[in-house]
Every structure is written in structure tokens, then in C-alpha cells.
């Protein structure tokens, strides 16, 4: 399914309400690691209404840096 943030087709249902009430479902994205619950505000769950400042494109994702550099392997 489609990720509401990066618009990839890499999202999946990761969880549902543990009381089995069906109150909510939670989705995760394998591309951008976003997570959202079906019951959140419209400007989170509805792609059309989301704040563009927080949307992701492949270009934006490329620009992100590694917080910790990968060290050289010990010989």
C-alpha cells in the first residue's frame, strides 16, 4: 500500500488495536520508516492534507546524512 509521506508503495499494516476492537490499525513504510495510525488527524493520514514541509521525495531522502559515520573495520 501507499505511504502517506514518501508515496512509495512500500507501506504495510504493522499492527492493529490489541483489544481486538478494531479501533485502529497502524501502518509502517519500508522505504522511509514512517509510521501512522488510522485514527490520527486528517492532516496526518490524508495525503492531500498533509503539510508539504514534511513530505518526502527520493531527492530529499538522498540529502539526509549519517548521524554516525561507519568506521573502518579493524584488521
Amino acid at each position: 500500500m501507499k505511504c502517506v509521506r514518501c508515496l512509495s508503495d512500500d507501506a504495510y499494516k504493522a499492527a492493529e488495536a490489541p483489544d481486538k476492537s478494531g479501533a485502529w490499525e497502524l501502518y509502517c513504510c519500508r522505504t522511509c520508516n514512517y509510521g501512522w495510525r488510522s485514527t490520527e488527524e486528517e492532516d496526518i493520514v490524508n495525503i492531500e492534507k498533509r503539510n508539504p514541509a514534511f513530505q518526502l521525495t527520493p531527492e530529499k531522502m538522498e540529502q539526509v546524512f549519517d548521524l554516525n559515520k561507519i568506521p573502518e573495520l579493524r584488521k
Binding site: 520508516n33 548521524l67 568506521p71
Partner: peptide, 30 residues
Amino acid sequence: IQVQHPNTIALHVMPFHDGGRHMSLAEERN
């Protein structure tokens, strides 16, 4: 810590923090 997937967490630790130092040493040893 961001819980990103059902059994996977993302750990955001500054390189200069002691926990960051431990992770870096672990990676040198793979």
C-alpha cells in the same frame, strides 16, 4: 528511539555520547 517496525527500533545517539562511542567500537569489530 523511533519504533519503526514491529520488532525494530532506530537509535539516535550523538557520536560524542558514550553510547555512540560503544556503537562505533562495535562496528569496528563488525
